[in-house]
């Protein structure tokens, strides 16, 4: 893809910008509904970046599970909020300050990690092998990995999902209580 045209480069950077703008917007926009939509935009951008990384499968998963599943869940969750528009209650100033501090520190760490990574790569070990479809490539595919060396984590992930589902039901369901007890 070195020979990729300006169009492709532009598209790539558009993806990056969408991700960045979506994330910043989702984090800062006062209207909660807008924030969720912006989050969806950002997640879609990430899916695009996955495509550039030859991770078509992950991109699909990102779209289907994240944008299609998780995001919808969160959208439902906004119904709980009394103040979706964010017009009544603003975050207190000290909370924003704390957030900025934490964000600054996180930015420091991220920069540091990125620098480290870039230095290692520029020392020139490997670049992407072109023209090889990752999914059908010479190495093992994701499915083989998941059922091979990653089997135990894979099973754990399954258990995690099951437990999460049961836990969610247990949390939400109203259990019959003794008659005198107050219903929470």
């Amino acid at each position: 893809m070195i020979a990729a045209g300006v169009f492709e480069l532009g598209l790539f950077w558009t993806c990056c910008l969408v991700v960045i703008a979506g994330a910043l917007g989702a984090a800062t926009v006062r209207n909660l509904f807008h924030a969720v939509l912006l989050l969806g935009l950002s997640l879609t951008g990430v899916a695009g970046l996955y495509l550039y990384l030859d991770a078509a499968y992950l991109a699909c998963v990102q779209i289907v599970v994240y944008v299609g599943g998780v995001l919808v869940l969160i959208l439902f969750a906004t119904l709980f909020s009394a103040d979706v528009m964010g017009s009544v209650q603003r975050a207190p100033r000290w909370l924003v300050a704390t957030g900025l501090l934490a964000a600054a520190i996180a930015a420091g760490v991220a920069t540091r990690i990125a620098q480290d990574a870039l230095r290692t790569v520029s020392r020139g070990t490997a670049g992407p092998a072109h023209g090889v479809d990752a999914i059908g490539g010479p190495g093992p595919g994701i499915g083989e990995l998941l059922l091979g060396p990653w089997l135990v984590p894979f099973l754990c992930a399954g258990v995690l999902l099951t437990v999460a589902l049961i836990g969610a039901v247990a949390t939400v369901k109203r259990f019959r209580r003794s008659p005198g007890a107050r219903h929470g």
Binding site: V19, I20, A27, T28, S42, R90, L95, A103, A106, T111
Partner: peptide
Amino acid sequence: AVLFVAGVFAAVARR
């Protein structure tokens, strides 16, 4: 990095 920093900020500063 921007995703992460924005995430941290949102997690902390959103009420």
